[in-house]
Each structure stands twice: as structure tokens, then as C-alpha cells.
């Protein structure tokens, strides 16, 4: 019994790390640009398809595929930000929402056209391997995904701490007006931020491609999952997204085990409602809930 719980908890922590990477992408975009990327899940699925394609066509395994996906989606993020989203920064929320819904539709349409509606599985040897850790059997794919995600998160944290543009991003998130005052070029900062946000989503998608089958209709689930984590952790907080991701990973694992698996999402939504009502700033969100 205990072993089962441990396995579920471990599995939850592992997948939670990847969830955290997805959520970090979302939260950094919101924290800096105050824009809610409702198409985030579609970007994750794009990463999944990239992972699938790279494996099927070039036998590239998940980890390098994740790096490639990160680069591709970084480019996409910069492109979308500079061409379209930059015009929407001052616009009302409902307008922004429709913009991202339009993105989601276009991306889903492209996915369907290029890949069809059927699920695409990555049948790599790693999908079947397991590691034995302290007596527990863990999916190798999960462990690798989690490890890579963690490395990427740490790399991002280092980037934000030690590079000039990383500091500029943090400054813009802290005080957009102040950033203008000191001569930070917001266009550049936003473009890089958008790129990073999407890169996180894409990399995470590629990392989970050996675990879940790629399907366009997974996208809304990923979007909502990312939201739940980000709200619970605190909009704009990286630490919050990390902790939130781990929490949700474990919570969903246990909810699926103890409650009806179909209803495990209900638990997450209930939690989301509770957080929105009682502590909208989330665990680590210092800023006042807007």
C-alpha cells in the first residue's frame, strides 16, 4: 500500500516538474506583459508533434528534440509578439482573449491538416524502460523528462539573474513604467519574453511525447492545467509555478487513485475556485490581484 502511494507520489512529482515548465512559460508571459496566453496548450501540443516528428523522421530522442522544439517555439513567440501581439498590449481583455483563441484555432487547424485527428504515439524504446530507484520502479521517460525540465528551469532562472536582458525582463515585470524610465526597450524585452514563454511550452511538449499521444484536442486541457498551476502558485512567480506544478502533479495522481479518475480534474477546478476566492495572489504572488 505504502509502496503504491510512494509510486503515485513519485510519478506525480516527476510529471509535476514538466507541468511546472509549462506553467513557467505562461506565468512569465503574464508577469511581464500582463497578457494571458489562452493558446498556451496549443503550443505544448506543437511541441508534442515536433517531438513525434523528430523521432519518427530522424530518430531524435526526446531530450534533444526538446531543445529543438524550444528553439523553434522561441522563434514563433518572437514572431507572433512582434507582428501581432504587440498591437494588443493596451487593448481590453476580451479582445486579447479572442486574439489568442484565434491563434489556438489557427494552430489547431494546422495541426489537424498536417497530422490528422488521430493520436500520434512515439514508440521509442524509452517508452518501455524503467529505472529502479530505491526499490521503486519509475518510467524512464518520466524521469528523463523531469530531469530535463528541471535543468531547463534552472537555466532560465540563471538567465534571468545573470544576463542583462534577463534583468531587464525582471525589471519590466516589476515596474513597467520604471523600465521605460531607465531606457529599457520594451519591444525587445517583450519579444524575448514571448519567445521564452512559448519555448517552455514547446520543450515540455516534446518531453512528454513519449508519455502521451499527441492529439490536437489535448491542447485545452494543457491550457487549463497551466492556468490552475499559475493561479495557485501566483501569477508572475517562477517559484510559485514550480511548486504549484509539483503540487498539482502529485494531487492529480492521488485524486485519480482515490477518487474516480474521470473526476480528478474536478478536484483541480475546485482547488482553483478556492484559491481564486480566498487567496487570488496564490502562494507566492506578492502583487495585488488585478
Amino acid at each position: 500500500m505504502v509502496e503504491l502511494y510512494l509510486k503515485v507520489a513519485a510519478g506525480g512529482l516527476l510529471i509535476g516538474t514538466v507541468y511546472a515548465l509549462i506553467a513557467i512559460g505562461l506565468t512569465i508571459i503574464f508577469g511581464v506583459m500582463r497578457v494571458v496566453n489562452f493558446a498556451h496548450g496549443e503550443m505544448v501540443v506543437m511541441g508534442m508533434y515536433l517531438g513525434y516528428a523528430l523521432w519518427t523522421l530522424f530518430a531524435i530522442p526526446a531530450i534533444p528534440a526538446a531543445l529543438i522544439a524550444a528553439v523553434v517555439l522561441f522563434g514563433l513567440g518572437v514572431f507572433l509578439q512582434v507582428t501581432v501581439v504587440s498591437r494588443f498590449v493596451g487593448r481590453p481583455q476580451h479582445s486579447q482573449f479572442i486574439l489568442f483563441i484565434a491563434f489556438a484555432l489557427v494552430i489547431t487547424g494546422l495541426h489537424l491538416m498536417l497530422m490528422g485527428p488521430d493520436a500520434r504515439s512515439v514508440m521509442a524504446p524509452i517508452s518501455f524502460q524503467t529505472y529502479s530507484v530505491g526499490g521503486l520502479r519509475l518510467d524512464a521517460a518520466r524521469v528523463q523528462a523531469a530531469a530535463t525540465a528541471l535543468v531547463m528551469i534552472l537555466a532560465l532562472v540563471a538567465f534571468l539573474r545573470f544576463t542583462f536582458i534577463g534583468r531587464a525582463i525582471r525589471a519590466a515585470a516589476d515596474n513597467p513604467l520604471g523600465a521605460e524610465v531607465v531606457g529599457i526597450r520594451s519591444g525587445r524585452v517583450y519579444a524575448v519574453t514571448a519567445g521564452i514563454g512559448l519555448a517552455c511550452a514547446g520543450a515540455a511538449g516534446a518531453l512528454v511525447s513519449p508519455l502521451f499521444d499527441a492529439q490536437p484536442f489535448l491542447a485545452p486541457e494543457f491550457t487549463l492545467l497551466a492556468f490552475i498551476i499559475v493561479i495557485i502558485g501566483g501569477l508572475g512567480s517562477l517559484t510559485g509555478a514550480l511548486i504549484g506544478g509539483l503540487l498539482i502533479g502529485v494531487a492529480e495522481g492521488f485524486a485519480a487513485l482515490l477518487i474516480n479518475p474521470a473526476m480528478k480534474s474536478m478536484f483541480s477546478y475546485g482547488l482553483l475556485i478556492a484559491v481564486l476566492l480566498l487567496r487570488p495572489a496564490g502562494l507566492f504572488g506578492g502583487r495585488e490581484a488585478r
Binding site: 534583468r167 525582471r170 506578492g286
Partner: peptide
Amino acid sequence: LIFPSLTVAENLDIGGS
């Protein structure tokens, strides 16, 4: 309009960038 979550040194650094 300083940056609250950045350190004093980081705030100055940005000013000099």
C-alpha cells in the same frame, strides 16, 4: 519607480546599462 524585487545593486546596474 524603482524595481522592488531586484536588489539595490541590480537596480543600479540596470540604470547603468
